[in-house]
Simulated scan of single mutants.
Amino acid sequence: MNVAYWIAAGLLALFYLYGGGMKMVRSRQQLRPMMAWVESTPMPVVRAIGVIEVLGAIGLILPPLTGIAPWVALAASTGFVVLQIGATGVHLSRADRQIALNITLMLTAAVTIWLATTWL
């Protein structure tokens, strides 16, 4: 289970470090081609989502790696499930039916929750 956790958590962390980092530093014009929702979302909210994603990615990796407060990984995984539920809702409310990535990320985070509970 440990190897499976590191694979799932590593993939999630890479995705959220990249996506969150982009939300933190890129302008609305640079984000718009990839994320249409930023057009109607205030930039401080977009930046806050980016910070949350980066912190969550760190929370998936650093605590289990160091053995300090490993429950943070469980909290980060749970937060990503909640984040993707919200993201799916935003897509559906905008009549955007392209939610396959959101569902995949949500399921991967759910699996990570299950895997994280095996060593807590």
Rank of each mutant, 00 (worst) to 15 (best):
M1G: 14
N2Q: 13
V3Y: 14
W6V: 10
I7D: 02
A8Q: 08
G10R: 07
G10K: 12
L14P: 07
F15D: 06
Y16L: 01
Y18A: 03
Y18N: 00
G19V: 01
G19W: 07
G19M: 00
G19D: 03
M22R: 15
M24H: 01
M24I: 11
V25R: 10
S27A: 04
S27I: 02
Q29W: 00
Q29I: 00
Q29V: 00
L31D: 02
L31P: 02
L31M: 11
R32S: 01
R32T: 03
P33G: 07
P33N: 09
M34P: 00
M35Q: 13
A36N: 06
A36W: 04
A36G: 10
S40N: 15
P42H: 03
M43N: 03
V45M: 13
V46C: 04
I49V: 14
G50F: 11
A57N: 11
I58M: 15
G59R: 08
I61P: 06
P63D: 06
P64I: 10
W71N: 09
L74S: 11
A75P: 03
L83C: 05
I85Y: 03
I85T: 06
I85D: 07
G86E: 12
A87H: 05
V90A: 05
L92H: 02
S93A: 11
R94P: 01
A95E: 06
R97G: 10
Q98C: 02
A100R: 12
I103G: 05
M106D: 04
A110H: 02
A110Y: 03
I113K: 04
W114D: 01
T117R: 14
T117L: 13
W119H: 14
W119V: 08
L120E: 01
L120M: 14
